[in-house]
Design a protein around this nucleic acid. Structure first.
Lengths: 340, 340
DNA sequence: CCTGTGCTTGGGAGCGATCTCATTCTACTA
DNA sequence: TAGTAGAATGAGATCGCTCCCAAGCACAGG
């Protein structure tokens, strides 16, 4: 597969390099018949312009980078990621962009920063938000790197963010429990160094307060966003002398662990205790009992973020700078009415 | 952040561009003190060579592409992927390579082929194997693109492959069931258009034959590698008049569905029926009952594949062209002795 | 003291595109 | 019919690096 250059394509089509370049880049001022002829040759020869030469001259790479920071990597086994990646790659692919993947772990952050950003190999960044105090974010914002943050941030203000309405989702969940008659409702939250965890916990509190139910701090347990985290937290809740009749768990993965703890304690959901999750991961329909949860449009999250970034890169700034997608309640079998 | 070029670095260090280039590329013939001085300037200025210019001149990009073909995309929600990706990015990162992600769905295959390969944006490919008759693989092999296939192929011969010993793993699993006294053992296999599914089924057959147990075709059910697939298959097995006392399920994800079918039939594992999975996904320890399964070193699969590819790209061909990693048995609670 | 050898160093010529600017061509107006 | 605006085209410079080759230099041997 020897590669032709734009020069040879030009010769074959009897035009200049400039004209071929115009055709490739959809520049208007090329006579239709000439354009035809050039496209013909390009197709015949299966010519594709060389990316490196192109970016050197044009200062654009048509590459965006998905940045997965340190703490997200820990929970990278969450089914969350494949879906979000799928949303991103689909959108980028359609619009002729490539996606690079960067998992920034530990102290390589600075290195990454150097290599990827200063080497100009990417036009823009999609970043999964994670720890509030992640040190990379301020650097990126400061450098004016085109950036869409997937997830919100309490005080840093990146130009664009996409997120699910986490707080509203939690309200949805807890309201459901309240409607079933529960009053003593526990919460298993993620680590509160993540915005997502905070928002979901706030939704829990908001819902209770609106219903006039007092908040008991011993009913709110913080844990890692993993099965282990959910398991440990649930054990703690079950060991209370007056245990809750229902629990809101801030992620399905944690809910899995919680279910196990319930099972090991010889109890059954929803009979002895109701459980509601968050995320609606693919496995949630197959737990025992099937998990009632809050569905997030995860793939949409990815595609929306990608769309915003590409629009920005192409000089058509998105109408909204901050988009918040709506979660929804998915009823399954893990919640039931309070038995008194 | 205005960007310095190699020219300015050269000036600041009082040497020529060539010398700076030599320092960057670790060329030996630079006097140590000069090298020091140049490195100093580079560090001070936070200079990083521009990727595009570099690849244009050197004809190398330091980018490898992870190719996720059509049919894999369907089961992309499998926790398999994050881990493999993690293995790949870690290795690549260490060795100064970037990872591009390409999900090739449907009819875009040809397009992808054009855009990514002929545009020379990548030095090599890591491909997740999928359907045996995937149309992209022959094209890649034919083009001599540096390629490591993750998974084996029955008749195409890519230069490099990494895989888990699927057949041996299945033997491990079924032997375990045999040892527990089971003789009527069912199998839920993946779709047999995938090499992985075939190998695991062959291991199942091999184990039975070696134990002198006749193979009954009605006990082997084919299904998709999803929870739904496992669910449907298990229902079929349970509806047999003489149902198996144990079932080998070719993936944990399917096993989840199978567990649900058992539960819905009013049965219990392992009391009424033993179940063994394959993969050891993170959730496997948190099913009810916890799933006995075959562990695969998934992350290692990714890092090994990456290592092979990079070694090849850097002119140090790996010693083995085909690597097969060993799976292992993980005992949990879903298997028990046969009750007669 | 001169020449040969081997290590350092510098300069120039690409790599393959884009982009600006000047030039040619077309067609329309006065 | 000449003049001219505007569209279409081409040539050359340029992007920032690598790599080849020639020149500089020091030292050893004859």
């Amino acid at each position: 597969m020897e590669q032709l250059t734009i020069r040879q394509i030009a010769q074959l089509a009897n035009v200049s390099r400039s004209t071929v370049s115009r055709v490739i880049n959809n520049h208007p001022s090329v006579r239709p018949e000439v354009r035809q002829r050039v496209l013909e040759v390009i197709r015949e020869q299966e010519y594709v312009p060389q990316a490196a030469a192109r970016s050197l001259a044009s200062r654009r790479t048509n590459v965006v980078t998905l940045l997965i920071p340190r703490s997200s990597a820990i929970i990278f086994t969450d089914p969350f990621f494949p879906l979000i990646i799928q949303g991103i790659t689909e959108t980028c692919s359609e619009r002729d962009y490539s996606v690079m993947l960067s998992m920034v772990t530990g102290l390589q952050e600075r290195d990454f920063y150097q290599r990827v950003l200063r080497s100009r190999m990417t036009d823009g960044l999609l970043m999964l938000s994670s720890d509030i105090d992640d040190p990379v974010l301020p650097l990126l914002i400061n450098d004016q790197m085109p950036l869409v943050l997937i997830g919100e941030h309490p005080y840093m203000q990146p130009m664009y963010t996409v997120d699910v309405a986490n707080r509203a989702g939690a309200v949805l969940a807890v309201n459901h429990l309240l409607q079933l008659g529960h009053r003593r409702i526990g919460a298993i939250t993620g680590l509160l160094q993540m915005k997502t965890a905070i928002d979901r916990r706030d939704g829990y509190k908001q819902s209770l307060l609106q219903a006039g139910v007092a908040i008991e701090h011993q009913l709110m347990i913080e844990g890692e966003f993993t099965q282990e985290g959910g398991y440990a937290a649930m054990r703690q809740l079950l060991s209370l002398e007056h245990r809750p009749s229902a629990v809101f768990v801030a992620s399905d993965t944690m809910a899995l662990g919680a279910l196990r703890a319930i099972y090991e304690a010889g109890l059954h959901a929803p009979h002895d205790i109701s459980l509601i999750g968050f995320d609606d991961v693919p496995g949630a329909a197959y737990t025992t009992p099937a998990l009632t949860t809050i569905h997030q449009p995860i793939q949409k999250l990815g595609s929306t973020a990608a769309t915003m970034l590409l629009d920005h890169l192409e000089g058509r700034p998105p109408l909204q700078q901050h988009i918040r997608l709506s979660p929804s309640l998915v009823l399954r079998q893990s919640c039931g009415p309070r038995v008194s």
